[in-house]
């Protein structure tokens, strides 16, 4: 019987699930588009795993990503970790002496500095998402190019066009202007890649000491145009790991392994959870002027969790009940 650790990364754009053995080898990876329906996508992903593996024992589960708390409620995770730690752990697993990790996802971009295998500093994009995958997505649509061909197109260019990349909307205006001047599409694509990299290094990477080896992970690492632009801007080799798109999930699986070794048991509810019916209800609490939007999740009619309130009026009810049940 196959024994695996499961890592789940519920992000804004994609939900990733990996199965990893005791030696950190990846045996299964699934990249699903979240499309605003995290619960259904999770159920689908886990259902596929059950179909694919007849006999499967899940030794432990780790969850990460912006939807980690929701995922924890649904699957019963052994460890809930933020993306930064998860990415750092996964990066260290690929290159043990890595010193810089660049991670660009759908709406986040991060830089993680590691010295002697310890995270010493990190930064995330703060008030704006202009240096992330969504920025490229949007411009690709404008250019009428499929996002998966975007990088190839950029590589064809010999002469890039400078595009103002500070803000996604102004970049679009600038790009349209350049199009109307008659610049080649490939030159514009390369210009956009360079704009994104410039923006990343000036915002997220500001004041950070980028030392090799550099790992580049996250969904945007698929784009060879961006890889090239980073290489040129940094003047050093940029490594892209084999499973660059599911690194968060791998990190979560590794952390779950460590956790389960400590506790000796898993909280996982079993792969059959995809057959359960989950209802999500939202309501506005009128208790005070905060008007919190409270969310409640029910599993086959049984209340699993409630959250979203500032004062704990609703979420505390659950805690009390859990205590009584236990």
């Amino acid at each position: 019987m196959a024994k695996y650790y499961m890592g789940i990364d519920v992000g804004s754009v994609s939900t990733n699930i990996v199965l990893m053995d005791d030696n950190n080898n990846i045996h299964y990876k699934k990249y699903l588009r979240t499309q605003g329906k995290p619960i259904e996508v999770l159920k689908k992903g886990i259902g596929e795993i059950e179909d694919k593996f007849d006999k499967l024992e899940v030794l432990g589960v780790g969850v990460t990503g912006s939807g980690r708390y929701l995922a924890n409620i649904i699957v019963g995770a052994d460890i809930v970790k933020n993306e930064i730690t998860a990415h750092a752990v996964a990066g260290l697993n690929v290159i043990p002496d890595v010193r810089t990790i660049i991670e660009i996802g759908g709406q986040d971009s991060k830089i993680i500095l590691i010295r002697d295998k310890i995270v010493t500093d990190f930064a995330m994009n703060t008030v704006c998402a202009a240096g992330t995958g969504s920025f490229l997505d949007r411009q690709a649509i404008r250019l009428g190019v499929d996002i998966s061909d975007f990088g190839k197109l950029a590589l064809q260019s010999k002469n890039s066009v400078r595009i103002a990349g500070r803000c996604a909307v102004f970049a679009e205006s600038d790009m349209i202007h350049k199009q109307q001047l008659g610049h080649k599409q490939s030159d514009i694509a390369k210009g956009l890649c360079e704009a994104l990299v410039r923006n990343y290094l000036n915002n997220v990477g500001k004041g950070k000491e980028i030392l090799p080896p550099v790992l580049f992970q996250g969904g945007v690492a698929a784009n060879i145009g961006i890889r090239q632009a980073f290489k040129e801007a940094l003047g050093m080799e940029v490594h892209v790991p084999e499973n660059y798109d599911v690194m968060g999930a791998i990190g979560a699986a590794i952390l779950a392994k460590e956790e389960v070794k400590k506790t000796g048991r898993t909280n996982f509810k079993g792969t059959s959870l995809h057959k359960m019916d989950y209802q999500v209800n939202g309501f506005e609490c009128n208790g005070c002027s905060n008007l919190c939007e409270v969310i409640e999740i029910k599993e086959d009619g049984k209340l699993l969790a409630r959250y979203g309130d500032k004062c704990g009026k609703w979420s505390n009810i659950i805690n009390d009940r859990d205590f009584k049940l236990a």
Binding site: N82, E83, T85, T120, D121, F122, M124, V127
Partner: peptide, 23 residues
């Protein structure tokens, strides 16, 4: 500011605490 998203804020806090713990 008024645009601050709570999820991203919490992620940063958690990661920072992790960093300090490991250190």
């Amino acid at each position: 500011d008024e645009m601050t998203g709570e999820a991203g804020y919490l992620t940063r806090l958690e990661a920072f605490v992790d960093l300090l713990r490991r250190k």
